[in-house]
Design a protein around this nucleic acid. Structure first.
Lengths: 186, 186
DNA sequence: ATGGTCATGGCAGGAACTGACATCGCCGAT
DNA sequence: ATCGGCGATGTCAGTTCCTGCCATGACCAT
């Protein structure tokens, strides 16, 4: 029996996305995913904490892509957050767009997956606000800056994966930010 | 057998909150809650879609408390959203504060409950943005205004239930809003 | 009283997880 | 080269969440 092929985690993720697209999240059991990856249901749960988590791996790197540029940025809280959001957007190259579209289609189709996505974004916002507070920023401004930064990403990302959209995520974020400024600056 | 006492839904909610506080969310089964309310597990799932939902009933009224004042408000998108947020805050009287504190303690202790709370707030934001779009506001500004309105509520609410806090939710929201303006207006 | 209707009970079963233990393959120590 | 450890996986039993289906009890209009 071929027991050790390596890349079990990646195989599970690929199988899961494929099956979720084909049969829907609800129409796919964890056993289905494990079978498609040549593994067992038990092994699935060793790699992912629950069924939804298979679509949301890499939270650590995701947060780091914001926290690292945040640490380097200078200026007031809001400027630093926006610099981090801009820097992180550079990690969303156009090659990833089709994959992101597919993944987001699956997520948007099921409230349980939307919940998980919101939690991940909320954790990111918390992490950013936490760093700011650790550096002396007051709690409320820290939370507001983090929330707005994540909101800019969230809204720009939705445009980025919309059908026919070709502009880069960075450009879209810049446009959303301009709108935000005019909303509150007027 | 006393089969019809009425208020089954309310009894289930009360029993759930009490047991979640005593034994934790994870340490309480749905059967426990149903038993404590003198009902069956099957009946629990007729009143609530899932175990978490017992803490989040009343989403309809919650959204209405924003949408109704929103419809009456005048001015640009952001001003209208803020007026709605302010009006809705009036529905959080001080008598509710101890209960809100207890409930929030339970929610904050379990990621699954945090997920559900985020989803409910996201649905509120979506509903507000949807109304704005229906009245001709561009999608991006509509989403931004809604997100910021909800963010103001969320952050002020966290302060409102903090230990020792005595100011009203409306006052706290006004302060958060002032901070928001200075963050983006500077 | 009679029939309809609605809330509830009872039961069976699927799917999501979890804990305990066994097994397989690799890799370093002797 | 053999042995023994170690990490990844398999196996299995069990709990909990949640759903479908049908039965039963209580209230109401006639």
């Amino acid at each position: 029996m071929v027991r050790w092929e390596g890349g079990a985690r990646e195989r599970l993720q690929a199988a899961a996305l494929r099956l979720f697209v084909e049969r829907g999240y609800d129409g796919t059991t964890v056993a289905d995913v494990a079978d498609a990856a040549g593994l067992t249901e038990r092994t699935f749960f060793r790699h992912f904490t629950d069924k939804r988590d298979v679509l949301f791996a890499g939270q650590e790197e995701f947060e780091q892509s914001y926290l690292e540029p945040l640490a380097r940025a200078e200026g007031d809280a809001m400027s630093r957050v926006l610099a981090a959001v801009d820097a992180a957007a550079a990690r969303f190259p156009d090659e990833r767009r089709p994959w992101s579209r597919l993944r987001q289609t699956v997520i948007d189709a099921d409230p349980r997956l939307r919940e998980r996505e919101l939690l991940k974004l909320s954790l990111l916002s918390e992490a950013i606000a936490g760093r700011l507070r650790a550096e002396g920023v007051e709690p409320v401004p820290a939370a507001l800056a983090a929330e707005n930064g994540v909101a800019v990403f969230r809204i720009a990302f939705a445009s980025w994966i919309a059908a026919g959209e070709t502009r880069s995520l960075q450009d879209l974020q810049a446009e959303v930010l301009a709108r935000l400024r005019s909303l509150l600056g007027a």
